[in-house]
Design a protein around this nucleic acid. Sequence first.
DNA 1: GGCTAAGCGAGACGGTACGTCCCGTCTTAGG
DNA 2: CCTAAGACGGGACGTACCGTCTCGCTTAGCC
Lengths: 198, 198, 198, 198
Amino acid sequence: MPNAGSPPRRPPGRPRSEGARRAILEAAYALLRKGGIASASSDDISKAAGVSKATLYRWWKTKEAIMLDAFCEKLTPVLPYEAKGSPLNALRQNVVRGADWLHSEDGRIAMRLICDFYEDPKLRQLFLEHFYLPRRGLQIRLVKQAMAAGELVGGTDPEILVDALQGPLFFRFLIGHAPVDKKFARDLVELVLKAVTA
Amino acid sequence: MPNAGSPPRRPPGRPRSEGARRAILEAAYALLRKGGIASASSDDISKAAGVSKATLYRWWKTKEAIMLDAFCEKLTPVLPYEAKGSPLNALRQNVVRGADWLHSEDGRIAMRLICDFYEDPKLRQLFLEHFYLPRRGLQIRLVKQAMAAGELVGGTDPEILVDALQGPLFFRFLIGHAPVDKKFARDLVELVLKAVTA
Amino acid sequence: MPNAGSPPRRPPGRPRSEGARRAILEAAYALLRKGGIASASSDDISKAAGVSKATLYRWWKTKEAIMLDAFCEKLTPVLPYEAKGSPLNALRQNVVRGADWLHSEDGRIAMRLICDFYEDPKLRQLFLEHFYLPRRGLQIRLVKQAMAAGELVGGTDPEILVDALQGPLFFRFLIGHAPVDKKFARDLVELVLKAVTA
Amino acid sequence: MPNAGSPPRRPPGRPRSEGARRAILEAAYALLRKGGIASASSDDISKAAGVSKATLYRWWKTKEAIMLDAFCEKLTPVLPYEAKGSPLNALRQNVVRGADWLHSEDGRIAMRLICDFYEDPKLRQLFLEHFYLPRRGLQIRLVKQAMAAGELVGGTDPEILVDALQGPLFFRFLIGHAPVDKKFARDLVELVLKAVTA
DNA sequence: GGCTAAGCGAGACGGTACGTCCCGTCTTAGG
DNA sequence: CCTAAGACGGGACGTACCGTCTCGCTTAGCC
């Protein structure tokens, strides 16, 4: 029974250059921060990365896909949220910090990506999987912990609660009808939590 | 004191063609429905409208501005919300209908515009003024009526309440992590209103 | 009877820029002389001419077509060949000078164009009409004059005679098996004319 | 003292694959016939031959060199021209057949190669050595035989005579101003030979 | 009626980015 | 040392779109 488990067999041919991959994502991310998705052309990326344009399109379908990848690669990994105090407090903090994050460079870029992918289900899905869902998972967990700790009334749907806490921040930020500041975040948390605490 | 009261003085030169204006907005809106803002080029619009491209740019600064105008022109006017029952019920209905509207063609277009205007404060502002703020005003009014009727506890900030009700729908729709259906809308309303009713 | 002769009516729209046309041909010719057809990219031409690449391709189908046009435009017009002495002498001179011309810059370019157009019947035809045929016409005329003057025996087909005089130069130049110098030209003329003189 | 006189020493390492060589030339020739030198990319050749591109460039410097080699390999060897009758007749026949050959597939390819090698002295030289010169040698020999047989007047330079007979066919074929048919070939031969026969 | 002023259709223009193509080289693993 | 596979840098290609411009024509009010 030779070659049974056939371990990760290297494909034939010259292997993909890890250096090129990283240089591309590095360059793309730098350009992303500097001027956004639209202001960086594919030539710019290839030049900045010291890479042929063909190499770009060999591995990514569009410029946008590169940008998404670059963004995801660069993000700080999702850490099991550490906050002092109770799970409920952690949740509160998480929301308030979310308001800040939206104004950070990464926050702005993330929003830009969401907007850019509005018409592109594939990239939207990727964004979801690689960026949003892991972070949302954290929040869901916090909610569940708070429920388990008896800080939230039972029977609350975590999904809805998380959306209720997060959505309004996002909404204000994108529409722009009112500021997304700490006060708003705190007031919102207060309002919503009133509904799910005793 | 000549020309004092002389009311709306017609400017010299050939007057602007109302036909061209309408044809442009009509064509732009049709293209907007068909394929979105990006898939329609300015040439497409001018051709579809039977109008010179110069005429487009004489009256609008960018393609996007045309699209926004076309969208606003076509929208049903904001009517003083008529709903059966109490103001609170009207608010409930309004939110649930909002979830439907997001999936309508106009809803999708509106979202597209918001995304397209992410980096353009001017158009974003225009969109706000001509589209969102009037509709938001309605909701604010409903909240105030409900408060006046004693259906909501006093001291509630209508702005936050409206965002809490609307934001999550918008959020889900754009991120796409979960459906924006009637059930979600109703559950959300239930949750949020629990916080602001006795 | 209005609009009867309908003289050269200017077409609607912005007229083609003569300046751009000339700048393009000028630049193309310069590049042609400098490095040949292959070494000049369409970007090079457009940059050197201070013209958009779109303008290039609006008027010419391919880079090669531009080059051909540039070459034809630049050539000295075909003058009624003035040579001292008899028509036969003029013919002799014409052939000998042809050997020199082949080595000139224009000669080399012409040969390059012929080679480049080998697979392109359209451009080949254009080259024929705009470049070769007019010049060949001159030679044909010389032959006829010589015949009329009794310097060549009657019944000679001018077409064949011209090919017999010109072809071998061209042949040697392109194949490169032997030099195309004055001596060869003179010897060839001597040989061929022996057949058509008494 | 090992390896002393043992001359034809097989080099170390895996020997060159004859199969690959033949497959490449075979494939190249097929592509040459089908679409010419330009329409076949090096990838095409390697794919068609089932061979790695590296193998191509290990043995040939450029795509054109492969094509030339493929062409030469496929050509019928140069046979000591067998024709009925006198050497002069053989020469006549040779020219007339040359006109036909130009229109054959091999003829067209040969012309294509000449054009492609216009700017490449090295390949031009190779083409000369491997293709043209051997065939020209035959014609030179025929001329000399005819002279020896007294069919041509003495003192005729065979080089010039051959060019005079061949060049015009080539000329017409490449420029395309007139057909290269049997009649032309025969008329040309008649004309030229008139000069070198008594 | 002629004059001035501006809008209009047509479409060419400069500029910029796109994604594809091909060449000849390089990097693996395997024969 | 050769080969297959195929990624790589470089660079040209021709297309698409944007927003501007240049024409000649039209439509008005004013003299």
